[in-house]
Structures are given as structure tokens and as C-alpha cells.
Design a protein around this nucleic acid. Structure first.
Lengths: 181, 181
DNA sequence: TGCTACGTTTAGTTCAATCTATACGTTCTA
DNA sequence: TAGAACGTATAGATTGAACTAAACGTAGCA
């Protein structure tokens, strides 16, 4: 147990916690991923309880979330009831999965929501006592709908690009930026 | 006060609240934006208090956040102490601003965090009793650093693209997707 | 000089997310 | 068949973000 090495890991894990939280996941998810990512060998739930310092229940829940997003992977060993976890290391693939599983669903919901509002407005446009306002609502809601559709299409395109990685992304955006290191 | 028209606005605003919350902003921010966006004329704080149904203090705070992100804009009228707010309607510009003001800062933080961890590891690589582990940490941390740098560059590129709108985005991604409507 | 109409600040409260502690069910082993 | 070693489910506690209520500061107006 090298003291400074542990400190570095701690630092790193803390950073990932923050990022995780920023992107709307729990801090624990980031921490757990960090612990697994830095481990030379697959980790069990109990390993994680020790390393991340949260209870087994919480680890269990968060590990499940991570696995659903394919950010970590479960491994079995013959003659061993424990589950072992390893980290996905293809970060582009991770982004793709997150987009697919989480963002996409929310986009769809947003689209449907606007759609419903728009229907309501359209259905009374002619017989309303406030036709002007209804027309305004109609226009604006439609504008946002068009935008959401485009965003949605963009996300779908990104997901479809299975070359979503290093070279491909750079090429897409043409300009080679200051991607130092 | 058309009953159904109000219902449609309510629906719409609720949708935006949810989207706002999903993206890490307060629900109130989404609701306030929605109210202003659908209004035929600029709104004051007190207008918003009535329409969104939260207290003046909360409106004040959230309105300030929205303004900082240039999602709404303040207007003054001569001989009138009230502030009037109008909605930005260029959604691509809004995304650009959010990326610039919020995401960029967090990206930078993430980068620095990983950098610090990496320095710690590198500084003891040779005199450590656990050189193997230190080497592993070094490798993995560096991988993630490279990735973060690329992401960072990507965001910077997007921000730099002031043609970040309709045509440009579609062209970038080549494949014309099912962007119906 | 008071009064009113604003926007802002802040102490305290509320509420949802996430954690802990613990009970539980299952599978393997002796 | 008992008990240990797992992962999971859940009631209750904790926490942090965001809201309310109310005081506040300032500008204009009479």
C-alpha cells in the first residue's frame, strides 16, 4: 500500500465522481467506474465496498446502472459465485451507448410532449375567441418541434455512426483543432 | 382566457421544465423560458410570478441564470423601471452558448483533475515499491486524458463553428437522416 | 420626507435523490 | 440440514438543490 499511489487514485476517482454527477449520474457511479478502471484485475462487489466506501446495497444498485449502460461488464468465473466487473475502455463506445440508452429516450419524450401541445392548439385554431394567440402558439411550438426533430436526427446519426471514434469525429468536423497530447 | 389554449401552454411549459431538469438546469428555468417564449410581448418579473407560479425571489434568480446563458434577453423601456424579458429564438445559438459557458468550464475542470492525478503518479514511478501498479495507473490515466482532450477539442470546434445551425450540422454529418417535418 | 414600485438577498424549509442499515432469498458446502 | 457467502430489495436517514417568505436597498415620485 503505497501512500502516494493511493492518493493519486483517490484524486482520480474524485474527479470521475464529479464528472458523473455533472452529467446527471450519481457520484457513486463515477467513483465505482474509476475504481474498476484503475484496477489491474476484475473487482467484486465487496472489493468495491472497500475501495469506494459505500455500502453493498448502494454498490449493487449503481453497478447495475453502469452495466445497463455497458460502461462496465460482468464476468463470471467457473466455480465461483461472485460477480466480477471490468471496465469498458472504449470511451467513444461508452458515449454512443449513453446517447442511445438515455438521451434518446428523453429526446423522444420531449418530441411527444411538444407534439401533444401542438395538437391541442391546432384543434381549436378556428373556433377560438383568441385566434391570434392560438396562431402565435402554433408557430412557436412548431419552430421548437422542427428544432427538436433536427436534434433528434442528429443524435440518431451519431449513434448510427459506428465509426464514432477518434479519427471519424475529427474528420467530420474538418478543422483539426488543438487536440494536443 | 381561453381554457384549452391555457391548457396547451401549460402542457408545453411542463415539457420544457422536464427537459431543463434533465439537462441539469432547474425546472423553473425551463418553465420561465417557456412562458416568455410563448408570450406575444415581453414579460416582467411579476408577469412571470403569475404565469409560472413561483415566488418573485425564485423568478429573479432563475431569470438571471437564463440571461447569463443568453437564453432570454433583458429589455428596458424609457420611463419604466421594470425589466422586460424576451426569449432567444435561435436554438442553435442557445446550444452554442450553453456549451461555451457551462460545459466548457466543466470539461476544463475534468482535464485539470486528471492531469493532477497523472502528475502524482508520474512523480513516483521510479522509486515506488509498486512500480507495476504505478505504471498501470499511468497508462490508464493517460488514456482517459487523451480522450478528454479530444472531447474538449471537439467542443471547442463546435463552438467555433458559428455556422452551427440547420444546414451546417446536417452537412457535417453527411447522411441526411429522417429529419421529417 | 415619506411612500410606492421595483429587483435582490438570505434564513429557513421542502423535496427528491441517494445513501445506510438491515432483512431477505438463493445457492453452495459440509 | 444448517450455515456461510453471495446479490438484492426496502424502510428510513441524509443531503443538496431549489423554493418560499420576508426583509432589504434603491430609485422615482408626490
Amino acid at each position: 500500500m503505497n501512500k502516494e499511489l493511493d492518493a493519486a487514485r483517490e484524486q482520480f476517482i474524485q474527479g470521475l465522481s464529479r464528472i458523473s454527477h455533472f452529467w446527471g449520474f450519481s457520484k457513486a457511479m463515477g467513483a465505482i467506474y474509476g475504481a474498476i478502471y484503475l484496477s489491474p484485475s476484475p473487482l467484486t462487489l465487496d472489493d468495491l465496498v472497500k475501495q469506494v466506501n459505500i455500502t453493498k446495497g448502494a454498490v449493487s444498485t449503481n453497478v447495475r446502472s453502469l452495466e445497463r449502460l455497458k460502461i462496465i461488464h460482468k464476468q463470471y468465473k467457473v466455480g465461483d459465485r461472485k460477480d466480477y466487473y471490468v471496465a469498458e475502455t472504449d470511451f467513444w463506445k461508452m458515449i454512443k451507448n449513453i446517447l442511445k440508452e438515455r438521451e434518446k429516450a428523453e429526446f423522444d419524450h420531449a418530441l411527444k410532449s411538444v407534439e401533444r401541445s401542438l395538437e391541442m392548439v391546432k384543434s381549436l385554431k378556428s373556433d377560438s375567441t383568441e385566434m391570434e394567440l392560438a396562431a402565435l402558439y402554433g408557430e412557436r411550438m412548431q419552430s421548437i418541434q422542427v428544432f427538436f426533430n433536427k436534434l433528434d436526427g442528429l443524435v440518431a446519426t451519431i449513434i448510427a455512426l459506428d465509426e464514432l471514434r477518434e479519427g471519424a469525429v475529427k474528420k467530420l468536423f474538418g478543422k483539426e483543432k488543438t487536440t494536443k497530447s
